[in-house]
Computed example of a mutant assay.
Amino acid sequence: MTRRTDIPSKARVRAALTRLHEKATETGKRPTVLALAREFGLSNTTFRRHFPDVARDIAEAARTSTPTAVTPPSHYDLLVARNAKLKRRKRELTAHLTLAAARIQQVTLDNQRLKQQLEAATSVTRIGTHGRRPQAH
């Protein structure tokens, strides 16, 4: 069963399109029909069905506009990005190491407990070798 969605007025759509164009000039990305549809909580198809002229305007603007020239990142920007990536990786590895150490501690405690249960179940007494020196023959 489909849900009933409220279709916005043409004025609201045009105002949202203007905001999308302003945002696009700031970010350098082109506005899309999907972005405009999502702003109103509509699917792409529903938006195109109710506002074909707006969808056509956006598609036409995308065809006629030239993409802005993208400048390659500077050496400094590359280093900053690499440094951030390394910091994220270090945090991940530190978290994994902490979890591994905790797991090793848990397994060690479990092993000791199981040894004690085994000795108690089989009535075996452990003879310690600490404090004794090996005898010479």
Rank of each mutant, 00 (worst) to 15 (best):
residue 39 E to T: 13
residue 39 E to V: 06
residue 41 G to R: 01
residue 42 L to N: 01
residue 43 S to F: 03
residue 43 S to P: 01
residue 43 S to L: 06
residue 44 N to E: 09
residue 45 T to L: 13
residue 46 T to W: 03
residue 47 F to H: 01
residue 47 F to A: 01
residue 47 F to G: 00
residue 47 F to K: 00
residue 48 R to E: 05
residue 49 R to W: 06
residue 50 H to M: 10
residue 51 F to D: 02
residue 51 F to K: 00
residue 51 F to R: 00
residue 52 P to E: 03
residue 52 P to Q: 04
residue 53 D to I: 03
residue 53 D to M: 09
residue 55 A to N: 04
residue 55 A to I: 04
residue 55 A to F: 00
residue 55 A to M: 04
residue 56 R to H: 12
residue 56 R to V: 04
residue 56 R to A: 10
residue 56 R to Q: 09
residue 57 D to M: 07
residue 58 I to E: 00
residue 58 I to M: 03
residue 58 I to S: 02
residue 59 A to Q: 11
residue 59 A to H: 08
residue 59 A to G: 03
residue 61 A to M: 07
residue 62 A to R: 08
residue 62 A to V: 04
residue 62 A to Y: 05
residue 63 R to V: 06
residue 63 R to D: 12
residue 64 T to E: 04
residue 65 S to A: 09
residue 65 S to P: 01
residue 66 T to Q: 13
residue 66 T to R: 10
residue 67 P to R: 14
residue 68 T to D: 09
residue 68 T to F: 06
residue 69 A to I: 14
residue 69 A to D: 05
residue 69 A to W: 13
residue 70 V to W: 07
residue 70 V to N: 10
residue 70 V to I: 15
residue 71 T to V: 12
residue 71 T to Q: 13
residue 72 P to C: 10
residue 72 P to H: 08
residue 73 P to M: 06
residue 73 P to K: 05
residue 74 S to V: 02
residue 74 S to K: 07
residue 75 H to V: 11
residue 75 H to Q: 15
residue 75 H to K: 13
residue 76 Y to T: 05
residue 76 Y to C: 10
residue 77 D to M: 10
residue 78 L to I: 12
residue 78 L to R: 15
residue 79 L to T: 08
residue 80 V to F: 09
residue 81 A to E: 03
residue 83 N to C: 07
residue 83 N to K: 11
residue 87 K to R: 11
residue 87 K to Y: 13
residue 89 R to P: 02
residue 90 K to H: 04
residue 91 R to T: 10
residue 93 L to C: 08
residue 93 L to V: 07
residue 95 A to T: 07
residue 96 H to G: 02
residue 96 H to Q: 11
residue 97 L to I: 09
residue 98 T to V: 04
residue 100 A to K: 10
residue 100 A to F: 08
residue 101 A to V: 08
residue 101 A to K: 15
residue 102 A to F: 05
residue 102 A to C: 07
residue 102 A to W: 02
residue 103 R to W: 03
residue 104 I to P: 01
residue 104 I to G: 02
residue 106 Q to A: 14
residue 107 V to F: 11
residue 107 V to A: 12
residue 107 V to D: 05
residue 107 V to Y: 10
residue 108 T to K: 15
residue 108 T to Q: 15
residue 109 L to I: 10
residue 109 L to N: 13
residue 109 L to D: 10
residue 110 D to W: 06
residue 110 D to Q: 13
residue 111 N to L: 15
residue 111 N to E: 08
residue 112 Q to H: 11
residue 112 Q to E: 12
